[in-house]
C-alpha cells in the first residue's frame, strides 16, 4: 500500500488542530501539525506535503504571509484557508493570493474534508 498523503494542519488553537488532524487521519491522510506561522511555513517548504489547511490569525507569521511565501515556492499546492474572518474583503484577498478555497469557522469537519479532497482532485 502506498504511503498516506501528508496534510499540513496550520492552526494555533490546540483543540481545533487536534480536531482537524483527527478527522484527516480517519479519512486515511497523515496530518502534520503546526501551531504557528513560522513552523507552518518551514514544514510547507521542507516536507513532502499534498495540501495545507491554513488558519489566518497565527503567532509569529499570519496565514496570509504563509500563503504568499508558499505560493512563490509551490504554485500548485492546494491550500484551504480556514478562518474566523468572514468579511468579503478577507475572502477576496486570500483567493487573489492564490488560496484554493476558503472556509469560515465554525465549520463542519465533514465539509472541510470534502472540500479538501475536491481541491486536491482539481489540482
Amino acid at each position: 500500500m502506498a504511503d498516506p498523503q501528508q496534510i499540513l494542519v496550520a492552526e494555533d488553537d490546540p483543540g481545533l488542530n487536534r480536531l482537524i488532524s483527527f478527522k484527516l487521519e480517519k479519512e486515511g491522510f497523515k496530518a502534520i501539525s503546526a501551531f504557528d506561522g513560522k513552523k507552518a511555513l518551514k514544514t510547507a517548504l521542507e516536507e513532502n506535503i499534498s495540501a495545507i489547511v491554513l488558519d489566518i490569525m497565527m503567532p509569529f507569521l499570519d496565514g496570509i504571509q504563509v500563503l504568499k511565501k508558499v505560493r512563490a515556492a509551490k504554485p500548485h499546492l492546494p491550500v484551504i484557508i480556514l478562518s474566523v474572518k468572514s468579511r468579503e474583503a478577507d475572502l477576496h484577498q486570500a483567493l487573489e493570493l492564490g488560496a484554493s478555497d476558503y472556509m469560515t469557522k465554525p465549520f463542519q469537519p465533514e465539509k472541510l474534508v470534502e472540500r479538501l479532497k475536491q481541491v486536491m482532485e482539481d489540482n
Binding site: D13, L19, M57, V84, K105, P106, Q108
Partner: peptide
C-alpha cells in the same frame, strides 16, 4: 470575533465528530 468563534468552532467540530 476571534475570541468568540474559536471556542464555538471547537464545540461544533467535536460534536460533529
Amino acid at each position: 470575533s476571534h475570541e468568540l468563534k474559536t471556542p464555538l468552532a471547537n464545540m461544533q467540530g467535536y460534536l460533529d465528530l
